[in-house]
Amino acid sequence: MLPITKELGKAAQKIHDPNMKNASPGKRTSSAKTKTQSQGRPPRSVIHPIIIYPFQQPSDSLDLGPLYELVARLNARKDVYSRPITVIDRKTHEVNAQKTEYVEFRKKTVSAHSDILDVWCVDTCQMWYSGLGFASERGGPSDVYWLIPGDFNYGSTIGREVLSRLHDLPEICVELEQDLCIGEIPTDHGNSKQLIDTYGTFALLYNWFPEEAREIRQYTERPRSEFFAIRHGFLKEMLLRRWYAHEQTVVILLHAIFSRKNISRFLVGHITDLPEGSDTLASALQQVERTERVLRSVWLERHKNIPDWIGRFRMLEIQSEQAVRTSLNILQNLLP
């Protein structure tokens, strides 16, 4: 058990807000697991859905409504799924605690179909960490954890199609014995996320981790995807490592390649979390710089004990700065 997760759990349990419910780690075991284990058979894989509640509470439930219809269906399939977990940032709660729409939706929908994990988080990656860590404490070696971001346009026609297809991610992990299944959002070449990944993420990956980058690109064009399912053993390995504040999917993919895990990619459909449908240049700049910081840290972590690492590091750092500058020049010409 991770000390940080433990502390988060303790902190959450100390809060006495009547609107807040804190799930207790380890208390609940899914009915599927209990049943199969009691029959003396090998344990079946249980799928643990983890929903990352939007940081900004939407003004209506057009997108969250359909998402929680899915969550309700998952919660009803106790033979396949563990009770879903919804991770809510305490800041989101504090800002909205007096707003009837939020309070009602939380009480009547979110907590009806999932256990709510209220945590103070500095960013979305920490919400992932808390949710996945909490879920892993409930799970077993054959289980699979399914991350579902809450801030996409699930209310659109395409969004509903995507919701009907997302279950493929954990099922692929279970049925095809995969350690990681990445959900890819297919986009055209002009899409801002695609441009950032093509000229930023991959340019930097090819600099810091060229062999691994080639391997990653054989699976996906979107290595920063927020949709994925991960097997228990690999998740535990990742949770016990340093957890990066940004671009954690890239880090997970790198470690999957380092340790020769079984990786799959599945198309989940055309869906977006961008209100305007495109990133601004300022946002793109932040994303590219964040990726660079993370890759630099991962490289240092892996190479700091190798003799003369500093010489290689300095060379890669110079090239990395060039890659960032080049990507920003390109993105400046392509993004608003």
């Binding site: 493929d168 095809l176 299944c181 079984n262 990619r265 599945f266």
Partner: peptide, 9 residues
Amino acid sequence: DPTAMGITK
């Protein structure tokens, strides 16, 4: 299959 929904090994 270039039209496949997914890729693995």
